[in-house]
Amino acid sequence: MAVDGISFQINKGECLGLVGESGCGKSTTAKMITRLEAADEGGIFLNGKEITQAGNKELRAIYRDIQMIFQMPVDSFNPRIRLGESIMESMINQGMKRHRAKARAQECLAVCGLPKEFADRYPHQVSGGECQRASIARAIANQPSLLICDEATSALDVTIQAQILKLIRQFQNEMGMTCLLICHDLALVQEVCDRVLVMSNGRIVEEGTPDEIIMNPREEYTKRLIDSVL
């Protein structure tokens, strides 16, 4: 069992951090929310509506509302499709006209600091940081109400990480986007999250504001995590 009886809620417009050692079940939790992984027990609710058993048709609507960014941006794009087409794909799937989707894709690339020429590039023709920005462009193109970032910046240079976090905060302020930030960098969580969950062995062992947790950790595991920050 990768995740065992966890309960939590994310409030609208909030940025919730999820921290814990690798293998503790963070990605599994994210995949359950996005239904990439099935929950064996319990319920998952989005905007008050149960989505645990949602069928294909319902899932399409759900995927517009929830977007996910992964650690390895290059792997999340089809290598044979231009970045612009990948960004347009889900908008077209949602019924948007092609020319509208194209304009929207270029708009989102621009917001993420990429000139519109990037729409014509293939994933291998851009750097890791540029590719990650393209994957954020793809995520926000759908104006999701919930954005899940699974270690989205840990493989990137610190300066690029800072740019990307700034973008995410900007979308939160401007569009009231809700964010689940999975990460093992406590300092980063302290900087951007309103609340944080600490996970260990598939369970949530502690919950609070980042300052509460970092300055007054109650669990042995959390203390170890904090002491490990050099």
């Binding site: 610190v158 300066t159 960098d185 300092a187 300055m215």
Partner: peptide, 13 residues
């Protein structure tokens, strides 16, 4: 300085 400022530092107190 840009490199250092880009790194979030943990505040323990």
């Amino acid at each position: 300085r840009k490199l250092i400022q880009a790194v979030p530092r943990i505040r323990k107190r």
